[in-house]
Design a protein around this nucleic acid. Structure first.
Lengths: 226, 226
DNA sequence: GTCTATACCCAGATAGAC
DNA sequence: GTCTATCTGGGTATAGAC
């Protein structure tokens, strides 16, 4: 990824000036990873303003002053977390690149892939959701530059399928909005879903049920059932 | 609603001790409404920790000290806002009470009703979403007591439809999760949706398109197309 | 009910010794 | 790189005059 045109660009945390990776940079990487992991979890659960850097530092196992040595400000840290999440997200958002040669199998892979991402990275999903709900202050440009081009391709693909009579004539935009919403809800709204299902938390089988429901309903709903 | 068993109960803001409503209580009600409206907007956009009571007061057109006269603490104010939102939400969540005598028309009304709520009260939707994402600290009990009973009835209804062979054998829980997610996304994720559609904000026609897409896809997807 | 003033606290960030 | 100490600003809330 080209750092120069990256709207979320920040000073590289790794060896920008100190040319060669040394022994110590390995320890540094490990510390940074632990901090980033702790930060992702806490930002997801409480939002940017709901966590103190002290809480993050404690979760990562160091003092807040020491953490500020690695990430000189809270915003800087948040940007790192956000960038990791976004790169992962945008990658999974390309329908065109999904496996399968028929429209049905491509769409099925897309839905299950997005659902799997929700299962594996619920905290990332929540951070993304928080960001969008708050008007996407940090990531608007990022989405514009990275998401829209991929999505345009995908929209065109779906339109082609419709033109070719392979599926119902539905609005392709709203199809994507629905897939995003239904898959991400299992991460973002897991509290409510678990509550409704009388569980403490969602299990793998719940995601399997969700996958079955979503692929059946959406594919059939747009006239793509095999 | 019985205040005594209400998990979000709070001291009544109106005449608890001063017995009779007087002239001044009218002015008070007006002030309170303006404060609540301002608070709902700002809490929705920035989250509980992202707004200061000063910002809310300014938006409502009074000093923060004066606002604290009406709502003696930030949390107290938030509870009021949240309670208004929740009552509205739970009401619209009952499928059983929807118009229509066929499963298809009942479900259609339900989807369009939820979508309409997103259009008319996007801020309420965002506050609700924020609350759930953060683990629903304030509203878990509320959902348990108010939402679950209604939902149980609705789940039973859908199961009956399936037993009667009126629709596909899909998991009723996930059907509701999908409807909630797809309708609320137009409020919660409006920033992203508008961005993708190259607009500044969503218009009525976008909601009509969404309604067409959702009713077509979901009804057909569960085997309920007329 | 509305104002001025202020107490109080917490969080982000910096300075400097080691 | 890690520590102790400290500065600073902003935010909630209260006191008390009018």
């Amino acid at each position: 990824m080209d750092e120069n045109t990256d709207p979320l660009a920040m000073k590289a945390s790794s060896d920008g000036d100190t040319a060669k990776p040394r022994k110590r940079s390995i320890a540094r990487k490990a510390q940074e990873s632990r901090i980033l992991e702790a930060a992702e979890m806490l930002f997801a659960q409480y939002g940017y303003n709901g966590v103190s850097i002290e809480a993050i530092a404690e979760q990562a196992g160091l003092s807040k002053q020491n953490m500020l040595y690695y990430f000189p400000s809270k915003e800087y840290l948040y940007h790192h977390v956000l960038k990791n999440v976004l790169d992962l997200w945008i990658d999974k958002m390309a329908l065109f690149e999904q496996a399968g040669d028929t429209p049905a199998s491509k769409l099925r892979s897309y839905i299950l892939g997005k659902l799997e991402l929700s299962r594996l990275r619920p905290n990332g999903s929540k951070i993304f959701a928080n960001e969008i709900i708050n008007g996407a202050p940090y990531i608007k440009e990022y989405l514009q530059q990275k998401l829209l081009p991929k999505l345009d391709t995908d929209i065109a693909l779906v339109k082609q399928w419709i033109t070719d009579g392979l599926m119902d004539s539905v609005d392709p935009y709203h199809l994507f909005f629905s897939i995003w919403a239904t898959t991400q809800t299992y991460a973002d709204f897991s509290t409510q879903i678990a509550l409704v299902m009388h569980k403490d938390s969602l299990e793998t089988t719940d995601y399997e049920d969700a996958g079955r429901f979503l692929t059946h309903t959406i594919l059939k709903g747009v006239g793509l059932s095999e």
